[in-house]
Nucleic acid binder design. Structure first.
Lengths: 122, 122
DNA sequence: ACTACTGTATTAAGTGGTTAATACAATAAT
DNA sequence: ATTATTGTATTAACCACTTAATACAGTAGT
C-alpha cells in the first residue's frame, strides 16, 4: 500500500481514511489479513502507537476485526463495504460542492470545469 | 460573514481559507475595508491572536494589505483575484478527483454521481 | 490636545497529536 | 517446551496550535 501523509491534519486520521479507501477500492479484500501493526507502521513510516490508534478506530466502526494474537482482518461483510463506498462518495461530493459554491460557482459551471480538467489530464 | 470552524485542522488555516473564499466569491470586494482584527476575531469567536495570524498570512500573499493604523483592505487587483479564483477551483477539483479515484470511481461514474446529487438537493 | 481605535508583540498556560522506549499477555509456529 | 509474533498498555518528552492577558506605537476623529 502506498501512503501519503502530510502535516495538515492528524496523522492517525489520515491513516484511517487511507486504510478505509484501501478497503473500499478493493486493495484490501473482504476477509484479508492485514499486516501487523508494526509492519503497517513501518510501511507508512509512522510510530506504531499512531497506527494502533488508527486501527482501533477502524475496529470500532466494524470495518476490521481482531484475533487477539493472530492478527487483524478485513470484515467479510461485503454489504457493509458497499454501503460505505456509497456513503463515502456522497460525503466527498457534498463537501466538494459546498466548497465550490462558497467560491461562487453554480452547478453548471462546476460540471463544465470538471469535464475540462478531466480532458486535460486524461 | 458566516464562519464555520471545526477542530479537525488548525483554526488559523480555516480562517485563511474562508476569508479567501469571501474575497473570491465577492463577499469582500476589491478595495473594501476589512473589520478590525478584534472585530473579526469576535465575529468568528476566535482569539485575536489567531485571527491576526490568519490575516498576516493573507497579507504575505498580497491578497490584503495593511495601513498601519487605519486598518486592513482587500487588494484592488481584480486580475489577481480572478486568477486566484481559477486556481482555487482547479485545486479543489484535482483534490476531489484524486480522492474519488482512490475510492475506485472512474471519470464517468464521478460525473454521474455528481449530477445525481445535484438533482436530489436542488 | 485628547481619545479611541488601528495593527503588532510578548509571555504564559493548556491541549492534543506524535514519537520513543518499553513492557506484558496470548498464541501460532517450531 | 521454546521462540517469535500478535495486539495492547504505559510513561515521558516534544511540538504546534490556541487562548489569555497585557502592553505598546501610530493615527484618525473629535
Amino acid at each position: 500500500m502506498q501512503w501519503e501523509l502530510n502535516s495538515d491534519r492528524p496523522v492517525y486520521v489520515q491513516l484511517i481514511e487511507q486504510i478505509q479507501a484501501g478497503i473500499i477500492s478493493g486493495y484490501y479484500k473482504p476477509g484479508d489479513k492485514l499486516p501487523s501493526v508494526r509492519d503497517l507502521a513501518a510501511e507508512a513510516t509512522v510510530n506504531p502507537n499512531t497506527m494502533q490508534k488508527a486501527l482501533s478506530e477502524l475496529e470500532r466502526t466494524g470495518l476490521i476485526y481482531t484475533n487477539r494474537t493472530s492478527g487483524r482482518y478485513i470484515t467479510s461483510d461485503e454489504v457493509m463495504i458497499k454501503k460505505l463506498k456509497g456513503q463515502s462518495a456522497k460525503d466527498q461530493i457534498m463537501e466538494f460542492l459546498d466548497k465550490m459554491k462558497l467560491l461562487g460557482f453554480n452547478s453548471e459551471e462546476i460540471i463544465a470545469l470538471i469535464k475540462e480538467i478531466m480532458n486535460n489530464t486524461e
